[in-house]
């Protein structure tokens, strides 16, 4: 890998994670309450624990916040898909 490409890779990854952290903190302490009623009563250590995941998956969560989802999605299995 060339130094230029490696530098771009590091900067882009760092930028993504920095944006993610900027989203994850308010998400964990406020926004998550809108997406999942079970999370609304979550403890403070739980909120701290979801920050790393929210930092990594922030585009998915941001999409759900903007869509104003109020419940987690329902899973799809063979038996649920038939209905």
């Amino acid at each position: 890998m060339t130094p230029l490409f490696a530098s771009w890779f590091v900067w882009l990854t760092g930028g993504y994670l920095l944006l993610g952290l900027g989203f994850a903190i308010p998400f964990a302490f406020r926004l998550v309450n809108r997406l999942d009623p079970v999370a609304a009563h979550g403890t403070r250590p739980f909120r701290l624990l979801i920050i790393p995941g929210a930092t990594l998956l922030w585009p998915l969560l941001l999409r759900r916040v903007l869509r104003r989802d109020t419940m987690p999605p329902t899973e799809r299995t063979a038996h649920r898909n038939i209905q």
């Binding site: 998550v32 999942d36 995941g53």
Partner: peptide
């Protein structure tokens, strides 16, 4: 491993759904 550890809590199971 980081992705897996960061999403190991049950909240992520509900948010992503169990199959995902």
């Amino acid at each position: 491993l980081a992705l897996m550890a960061a999403t190991s809590h049950d909240f992520w199971l509900a948010t992503l759904t169990a199959p995902v």
